[in-house]
Amino acid sequence: MSRHYDVEAVRKEFPAAERIVYLDSGFQAPLARPVMAAIETFLREGLETAGPKSVWLDRVEQTRAKVARFLGVSADEIAFTKNTSESMNIAANALPLRAGDSVLMIHGDHPNNTYAFLNLKKKGVRIDFLPMTDVVNAEAFLPYIDDTTRAISLSHVTFHAGHRFDIESIGALCADKKLYFVVDVMQAIGVVPIDVKAIQATFVGCGSHKGLLVPQGLGLLYWNQTLKELEPAYLAAASLAEIPDDLIARPDRLASSPTARRFELGNFNLPAIHALGASLDMIEQIGVKNIQNHCFDLGDHLLAQLDDLGVSLIGPRQRQHRSPHIYVVGLPATEWLSYFEENGVRVSPERDGIRISFGMFNTIDDVDRLVHLIRGRLSKKSFKAA
Rank of each mutant, 00 (worst) to 15 (best):
K289Q: 08
A385P: 12
T81R: 05
N113G: 15
A241E: 15
P258M: 04
L213H: 00
R64Y: 11
S348E: 15
R319N: 09
S323W: 04
I78F: 06
L247A: 01
K177G: 01
N362F: 11
V55G: 06
G211N: 06
R69P: 14
Q305S: 07
A32S: 13
I20F: 10
L280T: 15
K380Q: 10
T202C: 02
C295S: 08
S102P: 10
P244W: 04
D365V: 04
V183C: 03
R164F: 12
V183A: 00
L23Y: 13
W223E: 03
T49L: 02
F296P: 06
N89V: 02
T148D: 06
I364H: 13
E242P: 04
R355V: 14
D146Y: 10
L230H: 02
E45P: 09
S2V: 04
N93P: 00
N290P: 14
L57I: 04
R261M: 07
D246R: 09
T114G: 02
K228P: 05
E229R: 06
E40M: 15
T133E: 09
A116N: 00
R261V: 11
A32I: 13
L97Q: 07
R33S: 08
I127P: 01
E139H: 00
F383N: 00
Y327T: 12
K380A: 15
I364Q: 01
I189Y: 13
R3E: 04
S85H: 08
F117M: 08
Y180H: 02
G26Y: 12
G124Y: 05
R262S: 01
Q187K: 13
V73P: 01
K122E: 03
A29N: 14
A175Q: 10
G26F: 02
P143W: 03
E350H: 10
I291E: 08
S323M: 12
T114H: 06
Y115M: 08
